[in-house]
């Protein structure tokens, strides 16, 4: 389980680098963010939520049952949209209103 940073989309703002609780993300010579220690990711998704251009996605390693799906987030006002994309291209969007509590 780890993250992927799309260098085409990355604008090099460094917010993901700042917020990673494991300080695992660095900025490369090209000014783009990359994950320096992919095996050390906890999967907290802090970087996904911080990225202003949604360049980061999260995936499960094959060792814990990952099947090629990817998760990323986008925020619209109070709505946090979680998008899960499967290898066949189908996408499930789950919208969470950040003003609403969990029910469980």
């Amino acid at each position: 389980m780890s993250i992927e940073i799309n260098s085409q989309k990355c604008v090099g703002c460094g917010k993901c680098r700042d917020v990673c609780p494991g300080t695992l993300i660095a900025l490369g010579r090209d000014g783009k963010a990359f994950i320096r220690y992919p095996r050390d990711c906890w999967g907290c998704t802090s970087c996904l939520k911080e990225c202003p251009v949604y360049a980061i996605s999260f995936f499960l390693g094959a060792d814990i049952g990952g099947m090629g799906g990817r998760l990323h987030t986008e925020k619209e006002g109070d709505i946090l949209k979680w998008m899960i994309e499967r290898p066949d291209g189908s996408v499930t969007v789950t919208e969470v209103d950040t003003r609403e509590s969990n029910k469980y």
């Binding site: 999260f58 998760l71 979680w82 899960i84 969470v96």
Partner: peptide, 23 residues
């Protein structure tokens, strides 16, 4: 209940929701 669980896990352990939905 299932929908609520998917959301609840996104707020604390998103890998579980990803696992449910991708599998």
């Amino acid at each position: 209940q299932e929908q609520s669980l998917l959301k609840a896990y996104l707020n604390m352990a998103p890998s579980q929701t990803l696992k449910w939905l991708e599998s």
